[in-house]
Design a protein around this nucleic acid. Structure first.
Length: 667
RNA sequence: GCCUCCAUAGCUCAGUCGGUAGAGCGUUUCACUCGUAAUGAAAAGGUCAUCAGUUCGAUUCUGAUUGGAGGCUCCA
């Protein structure tokens, strides 16, 4: 008689025969591709033990997708080794929306290779190979992987795989060493195998035809610059062809929204080669958007009690010796210009001269303003704000559109306050920042708390602890999700950053609020307390846009170039139905201009439908149309960006509506 | 910084197996204009990124430089 065991299956107790596998348990649900046993993902074909809690995992669940993508990565690696028998395997984990696999190959992969590989993968999928798990000893694993040097390195590291580097723990985990064999269904032959922690899909058929290889690129082995670069192939995989298509459409939409593309199409900004990498110029239309952003920011900062200051773009090097930047970030600064040196005729130095640097940060200069005279506790908190232009020597490979530049303008403020004021000041700053971001149209946030990097910090542990705790309390009080970012802090203090999600659900790090106990020390700034003693203020760094340039890039993508009326370069275009109504249209536009609205009349020689098309392509928020019917009624007709209309609106009403939309910053 | 790829008109791209180039859009001009995403015609516009090398001759081949793309590493 067969022994019966008790399992908790998807929440309910069941009695089953001992030795029952997940595959038998869930055989009638083809969506189930893997299972979770006592919280751990397992292959379906593993027998279940009495008393365990078993949950089915569907292919379209987050874990199921990860397994699907990991298995697809195996299929790809099998195809790669068939195409390039000399290819050595690196690691091949799942990632967001897909997977990659690294290979050491003599020649990089070409786009044609990717197409060939996709076809080979489809053949493997159609063969319906089984993924078979095999527990091995370390010796067996080393024998099986004798020709895979990188796998042998992984075995060396298996004891502490979780710390070894990106993706390593997908291959080998602490505990058992396992190999996954790809077994051909008909012959039972093992066609391919890989050292892998699993779990995997039961078979390749489940991958169906909903996968694609997307790109190839180089990547450092184990993610370290010191290691050899391997060739990485990225791919994506989905439960259904429709899901794959939806993903590809999302990628295409992101490409259409790319601010570099829209910036050129809408004539907002450009990156002249003559200026150098990462140095943008803003064209008149981009300038209007930027000015509107800055004007509103100034207005709000004035209301919130900030003082406006201005500082130069260049300074003697000594300032950044005092601040510590030359110690910590010299590589990220433009090299110095050496000036004022004088030489004797024989080439010996008569006057040594000195180094000037472009400024990479505003804080030291603001601190000099603080220090320019004695300060009283009555002045604190002192909030110094500047649209401060900074220059950073970003490595050539990382410069990217407006989001990573070498010259940028920060909406930078430094708040000097007492330790007692610190918490309230942080709280009100965070609220100020969140409120302002919402006004610009971003409203889906979470916070990140970046804490000390043990290899890169100054100041005492005690101070770090206090400031970290304070930031954490403030973050938690905000009610937003607060995620830890260990080691992410700047050398001088911990920070809270606001992460905003855009219209496509992508996350951007926006504002940062940083505590700094270090700069006040280094610059020895003080204030006189009510009791007459000299005390050291605390300094808070905060930027809301981060950089104006980057924020504009993010907003461009968030709005897909269709900026809300208050930011739009051209807010209204008047289109007369025929030339005879030009004057009528001009009268309407003049009324709008009198109210400060950016309005134009399209009097080009284009025909009416072409003018509509032009205005649509320029993403103008309000198109006003006037012809005979409207003119007789003293009205205009609206055409909105979505193509909808509102005809016969009295002119004064139309003007009021537009003015109101701009005033309220309506979307 | 590293790897791979790329650079032809303002934009998107074709082309030249080495003999100085073409389309569409845009621009200009002319004609035509009456209701919601492209009226027609003509013209202008290019040291084929820059600098060297090979060659009778280089936009084309080679190298370097600059700039760009996608990754990796980095991001105060």
């Amino acid at each position: 008689m067969l022994e019966q065991i008790t399992l908790t299956i998807d929440g309910a107790q069941h009695e089953v025969t001992a030795g029952t596998t997940g595959a038998e348990l869930f055989f009638d649900d083809r969506q189930v591709v893997v299972m979770r046993v006592d919280g751990v993902l397992r292959d379906l074909d593993r027998p279940l033990e009495s008393g365990t809690v078993v949950e089915s995992v569907a292919i379209d669940s987050p874990d199921g997708l990860n397994v699907l993508r990991h298995s697809t990565a195996h299929v790809m690696a099998q195809a790669v080794q068939a195409l390039r028998p000399d290819a050595k395997l690196g690691i091949g984990p799942y990632i967001t929306d897909g997977f990659y696999f690294d290979f050491d190959v003599a020649e990089p992969f070409t786009p044609e290779d990717l197409k060939t590989l996709e076809k080979m993968m489809q053949k493997i999928v159609n063969q319906n190979q089984r993924f078979v798990r095999r527990v091995v000893t370390e010796h067996e694993a080393r024998t099986a992987m004798a020709h895979e040097p990188y796998k042998l390195i992984l075995l060396d590291k298996s004891a502490n795989a979780d710390e070894a580097g990106e993706g390593v723990n997908v291959e080998v985990g602490a505990g058992e060493i396992t190999i996954y064999d790809n077994v051909e269904r008909k012959s039972g032959d093992t066609i391919w195998c890989d050292l892998c922690r699993g779990p995997h899909l039961p078979n390749t058929k489940l991958i169906s035809n909903a996968f694609a290889l997307t790109r190839s690129a180089a990547a450092y082995w184990l993610g370290s610059e010191k290691n050899k670069q391997l060739q990485r192939i990225y791919g994506t995989a989905w439960p259904t062809k429709d899901a794959l298509k939806a993903y590809q459409e999302r990628v295409a939409e992101a490409e259409r929204r790319d601010h570099r593309k829209l910036g050129a199409e809408l004539d907002l900004f450009s990156f002249p080669d003559e200026l150098g990498s990462g140095l943008p110029v803003f064209h008149p239309k981009g300038g209007i958007i930027r000015k509107a952003m800055e004007d509103y920011s100034r207005q709000r900062h004035t209301e919130a009690g900030y003082d406006f200051v201005y500082t130069p773009h260049i300074t003697k090097g000594h300032l950044y010796e005092v601040s510590g930047h030359l110690d910590w970030y010299r590589d990220g600064m433009f090299p110095p210009m050496h000036v004022d040196a004088e030489l004797n005729e024989d080439g010996t130095v008569r006057k040594p001269g000195q180094d000037y640097y472009l400024k990479p940060m505003n804080c030291p200069m603001h601190t000099l303003i603080y220090r320019s005279r004695g300060r009283s506790y009555r002045e604190l908190p002192l909030r110094l704000f500047e649209f401060g232009s900074v220059y950073r020597y970003e490595k050539s490979g990382v410069v990217h559109g407006l989001t990573r530049v070498r010259g940028m303008t920060q909406d930078d403020a430094h708040i000097y306050c007492t330790r007692e004021q610190m918490k309230d000041e942080l709280t009100s700053t965070l609220n100020f920042v969140l409120g302002l971001l919402k006004d610009y149209g971003l409203d889906d946030f979470y916070l990140e708390l970046s804490t000390k990097d043990p290899e890169k910090y100054v100041g005492s542990d005690e101070v770090w602890e206090e400031s970290t705790r304070t930031l954490e309390e403030v973050g938690q009080a905000s009610g937003l999700e607060l995620l830890p970012d260990p080691g992410g802090a700047a050398f001088y203090g911990p920070k809270i950053s606001v992460q905003a999600k855009d219209a496509l659900g992508r996350t951007w790090q926006m504002s940062t609020i940083q505590l700094d106990f270090n700069t006040p020390e280094r610059f020895e700034i003080e204030y006189q307390g009510a009791d007459g003693t000299r005390r050291r203020p605390v300094m808070i760094h905060r930027a809301l846009f981060g950089s104006v340039e980057r924020f504009m890039g993010v907003l461009t993508e968030h709005y897909a170039g269709a900026f809300p009326a208050w930011l739009a370069p051209v807010q209204v275009v008047g289109i007369p139905v025929a030339e005879a109504f030009n004057d009528y249209m001009f009268d309407v536009v003049d009324k709008l201009k009198a109210q400060g609205i950016r309005a134009e009349v399209d009097i080009s020689s284009d025909r009416f439908p072409k003018k509509i098309r032009t205005a649509s392509k320029e993403k103008v928020p309000f198109v006003l149309i006037a012809g005979g019917e409207d003119a007789e009624a003293g009205a205009v007709s609206f055409r909105f960006r979505d193509g909808s209309q509102d005809n016969g609106v009295p002119v004064d009403t139309a003007v009021a509506r537009i003015v109101e939309a701009v005033r309220t910053r309506a979307r």
